[in-house]
Simulated assay, not measured.
Amino acid sequence: MRADLGDLNAFLAVARAGGFRGAARTSGMSASALSEAVRRLEARLGVRLLHRTTRSVAPTEAGARLIERLGPALGEVEAALDLMNTFRDHPSGTLRLNVPTVAARVVLPSILPGFMAAYPDIKVEVVVEDGFVDILASGCDAGIRYEERLEQDMIAVPIGPRTQRAAAAAAPAYLDRCGRPTHPRDLLNHACLTGRFASGVTTDCWEFERDGEVIRIQVQGPLVVSLGAGVDLMIDMAVAGCGVISLFEDWLRPYFESGALEPVLQDWWQPFSGPFLYYPGRRLVPPPLRAFLDFIRTGGAGA
């Protein structure tokens, strides 16, 4: 037989205070509400729990036995609820994120160090996958994807740079040997390094934009790599002078700064909107994810 937790607390308050008025002063409930709660509990249990007189209230034998068992039990419940308060006020646990390779490379490195320093009791697990995944089925709390790959029933929060560009580049030695393109169509005469998603879709259609003009070029070249784990090889091959590469500008910036790669057709680099952190909106947000959302919303560590 189940009893309402509120009714049990009301009964215990009245018994401890020795009356309904005294319990009302300490519990924040009215005397009439307490009386109704005790009557409801007695009706559900089928036994009288309190002797009532005009001047005092005292437990019956059944009531005394219930108090004896109820006090420690409700104390455990309160301790459990206090533990939940600790999770809320000082979040701990595990935050599981599902992100594409580019997010692991150019988005999270500027965010996670500050977040982990601010929340040392939260462990972060990052699953790197370039295909679209069901984050709930994969056991993750949230994911990072670009706008065109977000599910409609997800809550999306901007994360990382709000505008990015697709950059084209090649090694100076390759450009000295094969010439520097001045127009996107010049790439038809160049070796271009491309990738393939797990779905089989290839990245051999490069898009450029300048002054409102958009040009799409179907490129060809000697190398196709699996996107994700194979991108490092594609960059290494570009640095080695094997052809032209097209990738996120932020990803290639260190190679521009070192001189290993030279920007190509920079006036034609096409901008696009940055990534989003997304999560299901139909359930309570776990404390580690809530802490992460608050961190990026307040601009934590360059988020």
Rank of each mutant, 00 (worst) to 15 (best):
L81H: 12
V102D: 03
E36R: 11
R48I: 02
A103W: 05
L108R: 08
R48M: 03
A33F: 08
L49G: 04
G28K: 02
M84E: 13
L45A: 03
L81M: 13
A31P: 10
L41F: 01
V57K: 07
D121V: 05
R39W: 04
S32M: 12
L49D: 04
A13D: 02
R39F: 03
V14C: 11
T54S: 14
A79R: 00
V133E: 12
E76A: 12
M29R: 12
S110Q: 11
A37H: 05
E42C: 03
V47M: 03
F115T: 01
V127A: 10
L34Q: 09
E36H: 12
V128M: 09
G75F: 11
K123F: 15
G19E: 09
D121L: 07
G114E: 06
G28I: 08
R44F: 02
L81Y: 13
S27W: 00
L70I: 08
T26D: 03
V47Y: 00
L97E: 05
L108N: 09
E36S: 14
E36I: 14
L8Q: 06
L66I: 06
P59I: 05
M116E: 14
A31G: 12
A73D: 07
F87T: 00
L45E: 02
R105G: 07
L108T: 10
A79E: 03
E125C: 08
A117E: 10
A43Y: 04
V102G: 02
V99I: 07
I67V: 07
